[in-house]
Design a protein around this nucleic acid. Structure first.
Lengths: 218, 218
DNA sequence: ATTTGTGAACCAATTCACAGCG
DNA sequence: CGCTGTGAATTGGTTCACAAAT
């Protein structure tokens, strides 16, 4: 009972939330949950129920019923329309504390994203780092990512010229980059999509929210 | 030449961007940069110059000049109006790969946020973990965070009842939580602000963006 | 010449409120 | 009843375009 939907592509903000929703469904699924209402999902995701329903409706519909969404069905619908669910090969660039943690943890807790290589320009560090995945010096990056068919790079640190690194990745066939350095990487080569997650910015935002609700009830 | 601004409080989206902007200014400052234009900032932050100017104008103004913003002045303005710049004491809850990396790295790279304690309910792990900060069992959480005056908790993992952990933190005086577990923590006790950063969701979003620009030019 | 600050116009996204259904 | 799906209304956010300043 999955009806695919009208051609209107979902807006950016909606896509982002649908990704979070998909994650929540994986959890619910592995917890053995069968059905889930828009209200429960909204509470978990920190949105409104109306928003959850609206988001889902942009991508398909599962038939109105007074009983909520069927977890597996909804998960499958999202996986199909958004191309999720398959395994994606990723690499880690920069073996500082974060990069080190990622490669030593292997791909545990990374869902369908599989770490297949780690890079650092400091060759000493390549030897002293314990890792669950093979490590390479940065000058081999282009060849290794091509050979290993890496789709996405997690960048945790860059020494000096970020453009150089992005170039190597792009030429090696990488198409997406997640910038975790907290600093700008400069302009991306065309064909390379670049996102960023900045823990530090998030902490700052949290701290200003605390400051601004100093006095009042809520 | 800092004129403080009208009482209209900045919108949420704007505040978030201003936090990122503040980070960029710290970088520029330590790189010895003197002045910076809205165009440069926009390129670094991935927004438009108009948006940068609008954001800044919600918080004050530094007098129009054909020469850009003075880095130190703007940084100071943001620090004052948003309460940034001071040192904030934080703790780490859960010593999995990420928590371990955070406590062993000390507060390096965390800007003005200082890690003062780590917690885990597994007492074995407390002994086997190398750390730059003192570690405690979870049942001491309430007392330790009170004693150490912790303002914000970074949660990297929870064993079973998340509500229990949030309760201890809140009773101990913690006012903000950054959820890095990738899973919902359930309802927060009142008075506890909870944000989340989900690397996995970000990776998913990146992967759907790649899929959806498979065929076309841009 | 350039770059800021800002009305005004525009576009996007969220919420409201309710019809429809099991 | 309780829950979904969705027009309509509303709120929020971004861009445009230009006056002011230097």
């Amino acid at each position: 009972m999955i009806r695919q939907r009208h051609g209107e592509k979902p807006a950016a903000a909606t896509l982002r939330r649908l990704c979070a929703l998909y994650g929540r469904l994986e959890d619910a699924s592995s917890d053995g949950q069968r059905r889930v209402t828009s209200f429960e999902l909204a509470a978990d995701l920190g949105t409104s129920a109306a928003s959850v329903r609206r988001d889902i409706s942009t991508v398909g519909e599962l038939g109105p019923s007074p009983v909520g969404y069927e977890v597996e069905g909804l998960k499958r619908l999202l996986a199909e329309t958004m191309g999720l669910g398959r395994t994606v090969r990723v690499c880690v660039v920069g073996l500082n504390w974060l990069g080190h943690a990622l490669v030593s943890g292997g791909s545990a807790g990374l869902g369908g994203f599989q770490i297949v290589a780690g890079f650092d320009s400091n060759t000493n560090r390549l030897e002293t780092t314990s890792s669950a995945v093979p490590l390479f010096p940065s000058y081999d990056m282009e060849q290794v990512v091509r050979r290993e068919a890496v789709e996405i790079a997690l960048i945790t640190a860059v020494s000096q010229p970020a453009g150089e690194i992005l170039g190597r990745l792009s030429r090696g066939g990488v198409r997406g980059v997640l910038n975790m350095t907290g600093r700008s990487l400069g302009p991306s080569p065309s064909g390379l999509v670049c996102n960023s997650v900045a823990v530090l910015d998030e902490l700052r935002y949290l701290s200003v929210m605390l400051r601004s609700e100093e006095g009042q009830s809520r």
